[in-house]
């Protein structure tokens, strides 16, 4: 478990890998400064997309396409092949163009969810977002998070 993908093609996985690095990057010491990829965020994105409606899936695929079209028009490369500064430039452009703004928000959202929701893949035991941002207290620290609504977690016991 943890390395299975239900929806994303290899090329799309590469795209989201690059997007995760741009939106919630991993720090130098990933144990203390995890990012979306550290916690297995790709699996979150994959599982979420897999259970979306066909229209929504199509919309996300179109959004990936928009990003790559923009990357190619700027740098003649796909988003995955850009360096971090170029990726940020493309994302900013995507936001500034009103027609692709919503796509930018939705791509950003799914990556933010993959990390700040406190998600992690079943076999990951390191630091997750809530600990990272020190989000806790009454009814929060002890909340039981059942992730089995995601395919990657189906049939798995909750770690907490």
């Amino acid at each position: 478990m943890g390395n299975e993908y239900y929806f994303l093609s290899e090329k799309e996985r590469h795209f989201f890998e690059a997007l995760c690095e741009a939106i919630v990057p991993e720090g130098e010491d990933s144990a203390k400064d995890p990012g979306a990829l550290t916690v297995g965020g790709l699996s979150y994105i994959d599982s979420s997309l897999c259970d979306m409606t066909p229209e929504r899936q199509k919309y996300f695929r179109q959004s990936i396409y928009s990003v790559d079209v923009l990357s190619n028009s700027f740098f003649s490369k796909n988003f995955y092949d850009l360096d971090p500064i170029q990726r940020n430039q493309v994302l900013k452009e995507l936001y500034l163009n009103p027609k692709t703004r919503e796509q930018m928000f939705d791509l950003r959202s799914i990556v933010l969810e993959a990390f700040y929701s406190d998600f992690h893949v079943p076999n990951y035991t390191g630091m997750t977002a809530w600990q990272y941002v020190d989000f806790g207290g009454k009814r929060i620290s002890d909340v039981k998070k059942d992730w089995t609504f995601l395919r990657i977690w189906k049939g798995q016991d909750d770690r907490e």
Binding site: A22, I23, G27, L91, K92, F105, Y116
Partner: peptide
């Protein structure tokens, strides 16, 4: 933290992401 991350913007009104957003979080 998720909703907070979704909401915050920079000085130009652009949504935040990346290390700057992580620092705020």
């Amino acid at each position: 933290p998720l909703s907070f991350a979704e909401f915050i913007v920079d000085e130009e009104g652009l949504p935040l992401w990346g290390e700057r957003q992580k620092e705020i979080l």
